[in-house]
Lab assay of single mutants.
Amino acid sequence: GATAVSEWTEYKTADGKTYYYNNRTLESTFEKPQELK
């Protein structure tokens, strides 16, 4: 079976905060997504 690849990509803001962006739902969040835990 195919492994589900996380759609979340980790980015940093200009002031160094980490956030996560989902390229399928176009959602962004500062909290670590469930799929990455």
Rank of each mutant, 00 (worst) to 15 (best):
T18S: 11
F30I: 06
Y20I: 00
L36W: 05
T3I: 12
S28K: 14
N23P: 07
L26G: 15
G1A: 13
A4P: 11
D15W: 04
K32I: 11
N22R: 00
Q34M: 12
K37N: 13
R24W: 10
G1H: 15
T18M: 05
R24I: 15
G1F: 12
T9Q: 13
L36H: 09
T9G: 06
L36E: 08
N22P: 01
R24F: 13
K32G: 03
T13K: 03
L26P: 01
Y11P: 00
N23Y: 09
K37I: 15
T18Q: 04
T9P: 01
W8P: 00
E35K: 05
K12P: 02
K12Q: 11
S28I: 15
T9E: 12
E10H: 02
R24A: 10
K37Y: 11
Y21H: 07
L26I: 02
T25I: 01
R24L: 14
T9F: 10
T13P: 01
Y11E: 08
L26Y: 12
L26K: 15
G16V: 00
T9A: 10
N22Y: 00
V5W: 12
F30L: 06
Y19F: 10
S6W: 09
T13F: 03
T13H: 04
A4Q: 13
E27F: 03
N22V: 00
K17E: 11
L36S: 05
T25G: 01
E35R: 04
S28P: 03
T3W: 04
T18D: 05
E7K: 03
Q34N: 14
V5D: 11
K32A: 08
N22L: 00
K32M: 14
K37S: 13
A4K: 11
E7G: 08
T13L: 05
E35W: 06
T3A: 13
A4H: 14
S28E: 08
T3L: 13
A2G: 14
P33S: 02
S28H: 11
T9R: 08
L36T: 08
A2W: 04
T25M: 02
T9D: 06
T13R: 03
F30N: 06
K12H: 10
G16D: 04
K17Q: 10
K32H: 06
L36G: 08
G1N: 14
P33N: 02
T18Y: 09
N23Q: 11
T13V: 02
K32Q: 09
T3D: 14
N22Q: 01
D15L: 04
S6D: 10
Q34V: 12
K32F: 06
E35Q: 08
T29D: 02
E27N: 03
E10N: 01
K17S: 05
D15Y: 04
F30H: 06
G16R: 01
K17Y: 08
W8E: 00
A4M: 12
G16L: 01
K17P: 01
Y20K: 00
Y11M: 15
D15N: 06
Y20A: 00
P33L: 02
W8Y: 02
K12G: 03
K37E: 13
L26T: 08
K12L: 11
L36K: 06
G1T: 12
K12N: 04
T9V: 15
F30K: 04
G1K: 13
K17W: 05
R24E: 08
L36Y: 12
Y20D: 01
N23H: 14
A14F: 04
E31G: 03
T29P: 01
Y11V: 10
K32R: 11
L36V: 09
Y11S: 05
Y20E: 01
Y21S: 03
L26V: 03
F30Q: 07
A14M: 08
E27T: 05
Y11T: 06
V5K: 13
T29F: 05
Y21I: 11
K17G: 04
V5E: 12
E7H: 08
G1V: 13
T9S: 11
Y20V: 00
Q34C: 15
F30M: 09
E35H: 08
V5S: 13
F30A: 06
T25A: 01
S6N: 11
L36I: 10
Y19I: 12
E10P: 04
S28Q: 11
V5N: 11
T29I: 07
Y11Q: 10
N23A: 11
E35T: 04
Y21V: 13
G16N: 03
A2T: 14
K12D: 03
G1P: 14
E31H: 07
T29V: 10
T3C: 10
P33H: 02
L36A: 08
Y19K: 06
E7I: 06
E31S: 09
T3M: 14
N22G: 00
E7V: 07
Y20F: 05
A2I: 14
Y21T: 06
E10A: 05
S6I: 09
T29S: 09
T9I: 14
G16W: 00
A2M: 13
T18A: 06
E7P: 07
E27M: 07
L26E: 11
Q34P: 14
E35G: 09
Y11K: 14
P33W: 02
T9M: 11
R24G: 05
T18R: 05
S28G: 09
R24P: 02
Q34E: 15
K17I: 14
E35L: 05
E31K: 05
Y19A: 09
E7T: 05
Y11D: 03
S28L: 15
Y20G: 00
E10Y: 03
Q34K: 12
T18G: 03
S6H: 09
T25P: 00
E31I: 13
T3F: 09
Y21N: 02
G1M: 13
T13E: 03
Q34Y: 10
T3H: 13
A2D: 14
P33T: 02
T9L: 09
T3P: 13
L36M: 10
R24S: 11
N22A: 00
T18H: 06
K17V: 12
S28Y: 15
E27P: 00
G16P: 00
E7Q: 06
T13W: 03
E10G: 01
N23R: 08
T29N: 03
A14K: 10
D15R: 03
D15P: 00
E27K: 06
T3G: 15
Y21R: 06
K12I: 12
D15A: 06
P33Y: 02
N23D: 07
K32N: 06
W8G: 01
Y21G: 02
T18N: 05
T18E: 05
K12M: 11
Y19V: 10
E31A: 07
S28T: 15
S6F: 08
E27S: 04
T9K: 09
N22T: 00
T9N: 08
E10V: 06
K17M: 08
L26A: 12
Y11G: 07
Y19T: 03
K37V: 15
W8K: 00
T13N: 09
G16Q: 02
T9H: 09
D15I: 02
D15G: 06
S6V: 09
F30G: 04
K37Q: 15
K12T: 13
K32P: 10
D15M: 03
L36Q: 07
E35A: 13
A14V: 11
P33G: 02
K12W: 07
T25F: 01
Q34G: 12
D15H: 04
A2S: 13
E35N: 09
Y19Q: 05
N23I: 12
N22D: 02
N23G: 06
E27W: 01
Y11W: 07
A2L: 12
K12R: 12
N22K: 00
E31P: 02
T29A: 04
T29Q: 08
E31M: 06
Y19M: 10
K37D: 14
N22H: 02
T25Y: 02
D15T: 06
E31R: 04
E27I: 07
K17T: 10
K17H: 07
Y19N: 03
